[in-house]
Design a protein around this nucleic acid. Structure first.
Lengths: 320, 320
DNA sequence: CTGAAAGCGCTAACAA
DNA sequence: TTGTTAGCGCTTTCAG
């Protein structure tokens, strides 16, 4: 493998000069620049980027932590972040954790090891404290509603958003309202539960544990909800479903299985995935591009910690 | 930042010894090993992986080239490859190209620059020749039907698969058969066109350019097809749609728009995405896990070039 | 079993 | 404007 020293020899200049032309630094005569370029071309030379990384301490690599890359929510997010990264000469390295702490640690450790300049965490399994410790090694941006002094965040106000959805159902005369979430332990789920409890209290509605459906993440999870609904003697009349794909499956199952939407069951989805548009599912639109752009900006700007709230919009269609 | 030399000093050993215990090499007394471990723990030391990379010339990083990470087909594939990578201590670096040659080059160049050990190309924009040149710098695995001596491939026999789908429609008494594809220039599209032409010829059916719908990639592209169908005086009676999400949108639009499926229009999708199951769409099942596993294996084994064909299964449901 | 020392290939401070 | 040189932090050969 030819290296910078070989090029220097070939072009009859010093390695510094070669480095200068390679990095477009000033103070090189056109003549020498040409000689270097010539040598580079002739020998089909390419920088060893690992040496650059070692020398500069920067890699232009951003880690991105998410549980599943084949889920529409996360893949839309990934897509948005990737757009930004590519436009800014950064590369993304993917950590698909499935919420396993060890996988998350691998990502965190790469920060320690300096293989990545920063880390975007879209959803986490580790405690907040653990994550915060790693800010000593590099930038972290988190998709979560938390005003930290050390970690930048981009977030949705899930409490408010969820409350808004519940209210909308209430205005449409629903009193038996339930919801479907990814995982009870998630931070956003807790915000949602709190919104739900507040909503019930303010409207004097009794809390019904059976109206809460956990583990609704994949498309096919909508079917489980459908079956549970079918077996309930007093099912909810409306459901907030925190993923359009789960909502889409549920709607499909209901159409086939004799539950009339929205008369027997009203549904509000989340994401505003195209499928919600064509299936005419009322949903909460999540601004993926904005979120991805914000997270990326936060993770590369090393000078300040910011907190950016993105707004979610209710899109009225035909399932309520 | 503490480095290996600091640890050596702290533990009163040489850097070599530190390196040995860090890498679990033999020939270190338990005593010294402990001393090193102690020092490591005390100073919260972590290897600088860039130095390791420079020194060893290996990065345990695999690049993955795909056009869109938010498309179900590619995100399923990404998911499958990611599963394998994580299980084998490799990390994935994502190149979302949108079929831009420059983006593809970036990935290829990282191979040259030794930032990645290998590259998996799920879909390409560059000419085959261009790509082949890069095998000099590292392993490449390609998701494409091509028996190359220098690049390992995992592939679907699109000709056969597509022919099979067409035949199935023919057996179901369809004579006006069309299809929807991603992009005409793709390698798989050409195989499909060839299958289509052969099929028409063998059954004495005239070629109808209007029966071929290009640019069907995103969910919402199904709507475009629907509108075109509506305006045709002599529309096809059956369509092979090379993506379940496009098929799903089309089915949805047809249900709303008064095209009866399968009577007015029969549809075969591709992928066997869960949505095809619940929407009862007849489809060709693509074995993503097998494909991802194969591609990953091929890209890390440096000793041989292999070609692995995966089989696609027709799943009969209710849209034909 | 252990350590000295020579790289890996590049950057950048400093001197000229 | 150019070149010398000392790192960056780790691995690995070789001699002991």
């Amino acid at each position: 493998m030819t290296n910078i020293r070989d090029i220097a020899k070939m072009a009859n200049v010093s390695v510094t000069t070669v480095s200068r032309v390679l990095n477009n630094h000033p103070y090189v005569t056109e003549e020498k620049r040409k000689a270097v370029m010539q040598a580079v071309k002739q020998s089909n030379y390419y920088k060893n980027i690992n040496a650059v990384h070692l020398s500069t301490g920067k890699t232009y690599l951003i880690g991105i932590v998410l549980p599943y890359s084949d889920h529409p929510y996360f893949s839309k997010l990934l897509h948005a972040i990737s757009n930004q990264a590519l436009a800014n000469q950064y590369k993304l390295i993917l950590f698909q954790t499935k919420y396993q702490k060890e996988k998350e640690e691998e990502a965190l450790n790469m920060l320690k090891q300096k293989q990545i300049d920063g880390l975007i965490i879209c959803s986490r399994a580790h405690e907040w404290d653990t994550i915060e410790q790693y800010t000593a090694y590099g930038r972290i941006a988190l998709l979560e509603n938390c005003k930290s002094k050390s970690i930048s965040t981009t977030f949705i106000d899930h409490h408010h958003t969820f409350y808004h959805a519940l209210e909308y159902l209430y205005k449409n005369n629903h009193r038996k309202i339930g919801y479907c979430i990814y995982r009870k332990t998630g931070v956003s789920s807790k915000e949602r539960e709190s919104a739900y409890r507040t909503f019930l209290k303010e409207n004097n509605i009794a809390y019904q544990p059976a109206y809460i459906f956990d583990q609704c993440l994949q498309y096919e999870d909508g079917e489980k909800v459908f079956h549970q609904l079918k077996q309930m003697t007093d099912p909810p009349s409306a459901l907030v479903v925190t993923s359009d794909q789960v909502a889409a499956c549920l709607v499909t199952c209901c159409q086939k299985g004799g539950i009339d939407i929205p008369n027997d069951l009203a549904i509000i989805g989340f994401d505003n995935h195209p499928m919600a548009k064509y299936m005419e599912i009322t949903t909460m639109e999540i601004p993926f591009e904005e979120m991805g752009g914000s997270l990326f900006k936060q993770v590369i700007q090393s000078d300040q910690v910011t907190h950016h709230q993105v707004d979610v919009r209710l899109i009225e269609r035909k399932t309520v």
